[in-house]
Amino acid sequence: MTSPLPMRYVQLRAFHYVAICGGFSRAAEALFLTQPAISDQVRKLEEEYDILLFNRRNKQVTLTQQGEELLTITRRLFDVEQQALELLTESRALRLGELRIVADAAHHLVPVLGRFRARYPGVHITLRAGNTQSVLDSLRAYEADLGVLGEMPEGRDFVTLKLNSTPIIAFAQRDHPAAARGRMSLADLARFPLVLREQGSKTRHRLEELAEAEGVPLAAAIEAEGREAVREIVASGAGVGFVSTAEFGADSRFSAIEIDAPPMLMDEALICLRERAGSKLVQAFFDIARSADPQG
């Protein structure tokens, strides 16, 4: 014998949506069903229990007293169902999910990644490098769930969390002639061969803004894609590079050179598309990032 529960559930759901949507047509749209199907399910519920749930007058649908009482119950019923679905979905995502991150500098995430992996060891994480433009493009194309970039993006498309804010400095191989001077103007730095990031890099954009403001010609002797490429070229003694102090690190091959100008701050931010902010994995990563101290 087939249990009547599945059919009763369908009928209760039809009643609930008619009640909360204010009509049969709107309920049908919400449930992706036809209006006759919704009407038939409500009618069968009323006939089976010999009860009138809706007053139908002049194409207006209102709840009867018994309908009001049943709606109080179905609100609890479907709210509990939604909570159960969210719990099941969250559990699966946080146990076996995949999180895709694209970052202009991965080291900003090291403290967060360690804590996240300790708490959610089953989540598979992919991390790839990019510049500001490629981070934004990857998020908008749904090729990444999270991004890290050297600015707080404008507009309302993204949810952001500031990780840190540090100034841009120059750096050179420790035996390079520029390394002996701990502080130089951009004009003086520009007399040396410069190793600059590719177009689309926020670091390069900030340098070009300063150069324009100070009337300094800024030309790349070598243009390299990616921060690590710049570091290795500078390590060879081929020129002077630029990086934020947070990214400079403790590499004994290099000497830091302060730029004699108003600080050019790089605001490293964790970001995601606003419409993806409800993802359980994204929420979990943001929560851990808020509780971590990336600079500590």
Rank of each mutant, 00 (worst) to 15 (best):
T62F: 04
T62I: 08
L63I: 12
T64E: 09
Q65R: 01
Q65K: 01
Q65D: 10
G67L: 06
E69F: 06
E69I: 05
L70G: 11
L71N: 04
L71A: 06
T72I: 15
I73Q: 03
I73S: 05
I73W: 02
T74D: 03
T74P: 06
R75A: 08
R75E: 12
R76K: 06
R76W: 11
D79W: 06
D79R: 11
E81P: 03
E81T: 10
Q82C: 06
Q82P: 01
A84E: 09
A84K: 00
L85Q: 07
L85F: 13
L85G: 00
L87T: 10
L88I: 14
T89P: 00
T89A: 10
E90M: 10
S91Y: 12
S91E: 10
S91M: 13
R92Q: 10
R92E: 09
A93F: 10
L94C: 05
L94H: 03
L94M: 11
R95Q: 05
R95F: 00
R95N: 02
L96P: 00
L96G: 00
G97C: 02
G97E: 02
G97H: 00
G97R: 00
L99I: 07
L99F: 02
L99D: 01
I101Y: 10
I101W: 07
I101G: 14
V102D: 02
V102P: 00
V102K: 05
H107Q: 12
H108W: 12
L109G: 14
V110F: 15
V110Y: 08
P111W: 09
V112I: 15
L113W: 13
G114S: 11
G114A: 11
G114F: 08
G114K: 02
R115I: 11
F116C: 14
R117C: 14
R117W: 00
R117H: 05
A118T: 14
A118M: 08
A118W: 00
R119G: 08
Y120G: 02
P121C: 12
P121A: 15
V123Y: 02
H124M: 11
H124K: 07
